[in-house]
Design a protein around this nucleic acid. Sequence first.
RNA 1: GGAGGAGUCGCAUAGUGGCCGAGUGCGCUUGUCUUGAAAACAAGUAAGGUGAAUAACCUUCGUGGGUUCGAAUCCCACCUCCUCCGCCA
Length: 418
Amino acid sequence: MLDIAYIRDNADKVKTAAKNKNREVDIDGILRLDEERRQLIQQTEKLRQERNQYGGGKEKPTPEIIEKGKKLKEELKLLEDKLRAVEDELNKLVSFVPSVPLDEVPVGSDESGNIEVKTWGEPTKFDFTPKDHITLGLELDLLDLDRGAKVSGYRGYFLKNQGAILHMALLFYVFQKLTQKGYTPMIAPSIVKAFTLFGTGQFPWGEGEVYKLNDEDAYLAGTAEVPVTGYYANEVLQEKDLPKKMVAFSPCFRREIGSYGKDTRGLYRVHEFWKIEQVIIGRSDLDEARMLHEELQVNSEEILQDLKLPYRQLLMCTGDMGEPQLKKYDIETWMPSRDAYGETMSNSIMGDFQTRRLNIRYKTKDGQTKYAFSFNNTALASPRILIAILENYQQKDGSIMVPEVLQTLTGFKEIRLK
RNA sequence: GGAGGAGUCGCAUAGUGGCCGAGUGCGCUUGUCUUGAAAACAAGUAAGGUGAAUAACCUUCGUGGGUUCGAAUCCCACCUCCUCCGCCA
């Protein structure tokens, strides 16, 4: 959510940003409504001031005053209804205005505009014909897609045997690693209220993507970013306590409604998965924000380096960013069956876009109240990461090596059919 | 799921229709006193909005509606918390 005053003062900048993000917003309409709103506020307050002058004494009000009050009440009601209608309309429009990307973000209309910042490792070479994770998973009985679909539906899956253990080991390894870096470990709820989804910017854009539970104010979050960023909603933090760094585990649910026919096989795109997510609530300072963003980046890269998985870092262009983001890096991990890198992590500076919607503020040392900045980055998303591990670690004899850092957690060093 | 109770300024409390944006205590800030500290005393101590404004005004007592000339106070719905019963990983 952008500050209406900011939109007022930077209308052109906001228009350009929306265009670069391929979004349509009616900035001129917003400005008109804002003008109308402010006029109505002034008229309303004048009447309220008048109303507030009556009463307040010990004596009973005179019949004249009561008559006058009745009239005022009617006039006020008309104005207040009008004001509310204008404000609702204005808020609705403003809630759709995307944030303005930082200057270093490349302008581009789609993924072709993304910039490869760096690569780490070399795409894995095989002296045999490598199998994809589905073949490997089925052959080694790590995975059951048919029964997954039978029980759970389209994109359903079971992880089994050493595949299930490997999955848990990965999650725990990463959870522990980030905790040791000073991040507060959290198990976050996946069932969330609508305000958290609106607050983080999943709504109003991605409503079709989120599972809703019955008629309640209850939805299944697609990422722990939603509950964990909402953790401090409506709170005023102290500057000395910032940044708050958190690492959260949660089940994640996505309808993948716009992805029919995309990545239909295997573990790449599923309705239900598990994720360790990094979230930071920090001060509203762009230089510090860039530093924290890089820190989150290093954390995720270290995880892939620990796992010895080749990856590359992308700086996303305006057209391939979400509405809330000021700057975004994706990390793509090498997936032999795709003969390409596939997205495994996404690292964003959200600025005060989310914190305005969630009303997360902090008091500065000199007593000012400001909206905080929020950040988030994937630490590990499973089972997607299993694709990279199974495929990159496969051996000629059909077995799979277990990444060294996981071996004490899994209790086995290789996966092969008994 | 059933029965009951409660949500007021950082915390604890007072407040049952106008003198209440709201008293008191604690906490915190500043000042006086003191070599310093404590104590005592004094003053201050919410957020948001309109506005050129360090003017003035408006809004906010869990949230949203309603009654009333007027609502922290009355009514309705919702949210959250507590107690008891039932069910349950």
